[in-house]
Design a protein around this nucleic acid. Structure first.
Length: 725
DNA sequence: GCAGTCGTCATTTTT
DNA sequence: TGACGACTGC
């Protein structure tokens, strides 16, 4: 170890009191409530280092779990920097990665195919469609997306088909039937979906005493990142793993829980304090990221939530710049504002990559994108397809999967006719019928039931010969060579060469890149898996970076969800309108608190300058809609915010503390003179327009109307002869 | 098997 | 508005 017993300086150096308390806590259960930007990863990393160097814990006894590969890689990297040595014995990984590792090690006990492969969401959806067809259930009555969603939700609650009794309603009984059929199909094909990885690993630890004992005595310390995002199954698994003696050190922030819709349970934080006795809560509230003003805004907003563990961010940095609010006329105006502020900042020397535009839903990116293109500003949108999700990559990998396992039906379906080999729908339907009747895979059905296939039987046989030949030639060959041959001999390369358009070129390049990627797995002895299995697992579990353009200096565009965990000197949060943010759906579902947390996440992404904006009119689904400013704007302490105009930069306080003033622009205000925000009105001289704001009350009350022909005007409400249209 | 057309729908996303 | 899937006709 690098540290002598008496020199623990590097481990606690530079930590604040709360961080130090967490890092040096006695080896008991701990819950660390880590506010945004409070040095959470630092605490995790130092805690592991502390356990190893001071508590003399073997790296072998430590398990650190994260949600994303990125977080896992970051943790391992920083840990090795701190300890100044590689820590291979230490298990650091995502929930899925760790579960996968266990299942590979104990595939027999888990009753899994030795060569089992991981099926991603897309495969799962296709597979479910086939199961539905097999059960004669129409897709319009049983939407595949809904069905997979339901099945995944059951798995996340650790429920198996046999856990349901017959008393459910018809719909539920059918879903259970589908779940069951899907499960059998997966078993037969040797496939495991994402949720199954976790559930299988949980069941393995729960039901196999020897394995449970093995891991319990091995993992003395389990550390969990982003604990507020754990789902029921992950929580159960942690409980089983920890047993009575394993110590859990969990880090999370209830205020940043924004994934309830995909099964995350914030309640796990509270549950943790009950289920793991002796734990103490450490709060990390000092923020090292944002200015005082930004933190004040964030604190003020999140204080509106009722169900909180309670936390108040603070900084010893100064107040910094005011938050600027821009009330745009419409979405284009909002875009112009953002773009011109970016241009100005860029001209003053701010790198583009220091600026991010955050929005609630992906659809909002289009207008912004167009604006940035017009202004010739480089940008990068997070989201979209990742490398291993591309069509051509998935095609090529499907051949590889078939080489490893002929019973992989989703892979078979994917490439049996890609490139086209005269095996159409009719043939496939027959083949599926045979497979269903005989209870075998498509591959075997094609072998034994060729007679039922009619004219196309020869084509199917040719396809099978191809796969067999590729498999034979793959023996003893390096993975890169195999991959290249697969792409060439399957005809995929030719297929995409013939495809027209500029996309085709990119696809060919991607295929070349795939060969390169395969090569890098040739001697990956790391996980003791055959290179091909290792490669396919990597493709499924770590689908790669989203989009290229990494190195370039460009403005970052992403959803608020995608921004979680990131930070930028300058942040633009756009579309702060009722219905958009908070989103209507969330309002309907009564999930305002999560939307508010999302807003909190957005605000706290910003280091120095935060811009907020909303549009009074927005084009949504092809329709121009009148929007009211988001309630969140009202909830941010008014002294933090200045309302700004596009060019001049002259600002005035946006909201008088509680009374009238501009505050009355906001949601929930009563209509004046029978007119309300967004109402269409007619003026004798100015023509038709829309009410966009009120100011003051009674005789002195003013109204802002955006006229169709003459633009926006402020009028005295009692004098203006406005009539509703 | 494929291109064109029509109808429907419309948060958020990692593994 | 526009993306995507199902359907139709060649």
């Amino acid at each position: 170890m690098r540290f002598d017993d008496d020199d623990i300086t590097p481990l606690i150096e530079g930590l604040n009191d709360a961080q130090r308390e967490a890092v040096t806590a006695p080896p008991e259960h701990r819950l660390v409530l880590a506010g945004a930007g409070s040095g959470k990863t630092r605490v995790l990393v130092h805690r592991v280092a502390w356990l190893i160097s001071v508590e003399n814990t073997s790296p072998h006894s430590v398990l650190a779990v994260t949600f994303t590969n990125k977080a896992a890689a970051e943790m391992r990297h920083r840990l090795e920097l701190l300890l100044d040595m590689p820590v291979r014995a230490l298990w650091v990984g995502t929930f899925h990665g760790i579960a996968h590792r266990m299942l590979r090690l104990h595939h027999k006990e888990a009753r899994l195919h030795q060569n089992f492969q991981i099926m991603d969401s897309d495969d799962q959806l296709r597979f479910i469609k086939r199961v539905l067809r097999g059960l004669d259930l129409p897709e319009d009555r049983w939407p595949p997306k809904t069905v997979t969603g339901w099945i995944n939700a059951q798995k996340e609650e650790a429920r198996r088909p046999e856990d349901f009794d017959d008393r459910g309603d018809f719909s539920q009984r059918q879903l259970v039937r589908i779940y069951s059929a899907y499960h059998n199909a997966c078993e037969q094909a040797g496939l495991v979906d994402f949720a199954e990885l976790l559930l299988r690993a949980f069941e393995l630890c729960r039901d196999d005493p020897a394995i449970r004992q093995h891991y319990r005595s091995r993992f003395r310390h389990i550390l969990v990142d982003e604990f507020q995002d754990t789902n029921t199954l992950q929580y159960k698994w942690l409980r089983v793993l920890a047993g009575d003696s394993g110590k859990l050190f969990v880090v999370g922030d209830d205020d940043q829980s924004v994934y309830s819709w995909r099964g995350a349970r914030v309640e796990n934080i509270v549950k943790f304090t009950r289920d793991f006795p002796g734990n103490e809560v450490v709060r990390l509230e000092q923020n090292y990221r944002s200015s005082g003003t930004i933190l004040k805004a964030a604190n003020g907003l999140i204080a509106r939530n009722s169900e909180r563990m309670g936390k108040q961010l603070w900084t010893d940095a100064g107040d910094g710049e005011s938050i600027q609010l821009y009330a745009a006329f419409n979405d284009l105006d909002e875009c112009d504002f953002v773009v011109s502020r970016i241009r100005e900042a860029h001209e003053r020397g701010t790198p583009l990559q220091d600026m991010a535009i955050l929005y609630r839903s992906n659809a909002q990116s289009r207008v912004l994108e167009e604006g940035l293109i017009r202004a010739r500003l480089a940008y990068r949108i997070y989201g979209g397809l990742r490398f291993f999700e591309r069509m051509e990559i998935r095609d090529a990998l499907a051949y590889l999967r078939l080489i490893g396992n002929r019973d992989d039906d989703p892979a078979f379906e994917r490439v049996v006719n890609t490139p086209t080999r005269g095996i159409g729908n009719t043939t496939m339907e027959r083949l599926r019928a045979v497979a269903r009747e005989q209870g075998v895979s498509l591959w075997n059905a094609a072998k034994t039931g060729a007679s039922a296939l009619g004219r196309s039987a020869g084509n199917v046989a040719l396809f099978q010969d191809l796969v067999d030949r590729l498999a034979r030639e793959a023996e003893g060959q390096a993975l890169g060579v195999v991959m290249d041959r697969v792409i060439e001999q399957s005809g995929l390369r030719e297929h995409y060469r013939k495809e027209k358009g500029e996309q085709a070129e990119a696809r060919l390049e991607n295929l070349d890149e795939l060969v390169t990627a395969a090569r890098s797995f040739e001697d990956s002895a790391e996980d003791d898996l055959p290179p091909m299995t290792s490669f396919l697992t990597h493709a499924a579990l770590e689908a790669g970076e989203r989009q290229a353009g990494e190195g370039e200096d460009c403005v970052q565009l992403m959803t608020l969800h995608a921004a979680k965990g990131l930070e930028f000197p300058t942040v633009f949060m756009v579309g702060l309108e009722e219905g958009l943010f908070p989103h209507v759906r969330a309002v309907q579902e009564g999930n305002i608190e999560e939307e508010r947390r999302l807003c909190y996440v957005g605000i706290t992404r910003s280091r120095r300058q935060l811009y907020l904006s909303y549009a009074e009119l927005r084009r949504l689904h092809g329709q121009e809609q009148v929007c009211m400013p988001s309630r969140f704007l009202r909830e941010i302490p008014s002294e933090c915010v200045l309302e700004t105009r596009p060019r001049s930069g002259t600002s005035r306080p946006a909201f008088a503390p509680r009374s009238a003033g501009l505050g009355s622009r906001f949601a929930g205000e009563p209509p004046r003179n029978g007119l309300k925000l967004g109402a269409h009105v007619r003026h004798p001289r100015f023509g038709e327009g829309v009410i966009t704001a009120f100011d003051g009350e009674g005789d002195r009350g003013r109204v802002e109307v955006s006229f169709r022909d003459v633009g926006s005007k402020w009028l005295i409400l009692s004098l203006a002869k406005l009539e509703a249209v």
